[in-house]
Write a protein that binds this DNA or RNA. Structure first.
Lengths: 248, 248
DNA sequence: GAGAATCAGGCAGAAACCCGCATAAATGCG
DNA sequence: CGCATTTATGCGGGTTTCTGCCTGATTCTC
């Protein structure tokens, strides 16, 4: 078996189960433990997974419990500052949830006059601190995992919204696979949100680049802007620019 | 199971319930008590949680819990405990916002199975920590003053709800004037909420008794229960009992 | 203050890890 | 094709990490 082939299979296991044991891989791929360990080492160096004692974990899985530790806060503030250049007085803006969006809200200019629709109570609370911003919270079933409202009622309300800009975090983006996720309900929700706005900007820290998860939300053709903490000239963003996205 | 995986699961439990017992984790993760204790130790060293005798606490809870800032907190907890006697498994409950309601939510039994509709994002977030509770956040314009959603859209959604119990704080109650308030929009909102439930309980610390404000929300005939921190036998509650309210 | 629960530290076996080395496979070049 | 070079793999042995058990100390509860 080719080394490259093994790597593919390992990544498939990771994306499928979010985790994998070294010993299981030994069994599955019929090579020595050392080989597996070396494979995991290079995949870890390539930021494809997270090596831990006994095996490896999915990189995006890890982000699940960042919410109070404010993971990669510096990067998120950097993203926020870039995003602000897209926001003008008078705009109607639709946002998702997540720590990246929260950081953005905290960085908004104090005098901004705008209307924000959001599915995240946290974002709504943060937005409410600005006098000039009108906040509309879209109601529905409240997801314990994602901390946003979701379900049919949310989607039908979204259908009536016509925003200038949609701002969304994501757990994975890939040049070919586009935006992907692991939760079907949230998936449906994001699809609906992308339909509501003329411009759609994805806010995403660099470690979530070039990752594909199981469920496809949308291809890159429906995204207009990609905002990361990296310089737009950065090599690893070239593939996205090639797809017609504006890179900030 | 990988060590890192265990840490993730422990943090999830913490974020969900704000606290966790060592013995519960032993049961959940199927490892020895020593292992759990060591895990808690490293997570504590990493500032991810707060280790205490017998288990661990959420760090953010701790900071959110310095709320001696919450006025008359003792009284509100007392009110919460009385209110719980009204709540049974399977109920559909509609709540308003305010610190009294938040305290109530924090005191709910962990195994409660119920459906909550609420207009307060803060209440929704707090409710979401209970596995057995389905939370529906009613969407609309988000009021910067009252920190609840309001407006025509909220009221029209309320019209479709038929709850067993409506729990509401209030800023004033009076034997003759009933429930009164100062804000016209919130006024309209509360009127609509009172229409949605078979039973309506007012949660109210004693110092708000016997006060009338400018705008009338409803007379006492639409209220079924009054819950204060005082003993039901207390003299100053007699006038309300005379109006047919159940006093707890 | 007694008894139970919880905790901290040390110990040992097992598992996982890392490193160097030798062999095998692949690659490049004349 | 033959041979040198590079790369990949497996193995052995020493090291580290993890986990459960044990013991004595501490804390909690009644």
């Amino acid at each position: 078996m080719l080394k490259r082939e093994r790597h593919e299979l390992i990544m498939r296991q990771i994306n499928l189960h979010n985790r994998v044991l070294t010993t299981d891989l030994v069994d599955l791929l019929q090579v020595s433990e050392d080989t597996i360990r070396r494979d995991l080492q290079v995949l870890c160096d390539e930021q494809k997974l997270l090596k831990v004692h006994g095996g490896a974990l999915s990189r995006s899985y890890q982000s699940a419990y960042d919410d109070n530790a404010i993971y990669a806060r510096e990067a998120k503030i950097c993203i926020a500052k870039k995003t602000i250049s897209l926001i003008k007085d008078g705009m109607v803006i639709l946002t998702g949830g997540g720590t990246t969006i929260i950081e953005l809200v905290k960085q908004l200019p104090v005098n901004l006059k705008a209307t924000f629709f959001t599915i995240s109570p946290f974002v709504a609370i943060e937005l409410a601190k600005y006098d000039g911003i009108e906040v509309i919270l879209i109601g529905g079933i409240f997801s314990k995992n994602s901390k946003v409202t979701f379900g049919g009622h949310v989607i039908s309300q979204l259908a009536g919204i016509n925003a200038d800009l949609c701002l969304m975090g994501t757990s994975a983006i890939h040049p070919e696979s586009g935006i992907t996720d692991t939760d079907w309900e949230i998936n449906q929700l994001k699809k609906a949100m992308f339909q509501c706005a003329r411009k759609v900007a994805i806010l995403c820290i660099s470690e979530k680049l070039n990752i594909a998860l199981r469920l496809k939300v949308t291809g890159l053709e429906n995204i207009t802007h990609l905002i990361t903490e990296l310089s737009p000239a950065e090599h690893c963003l070239a593939a996205y620019r090639g797809k017609g996205l504006n890179i900030l």
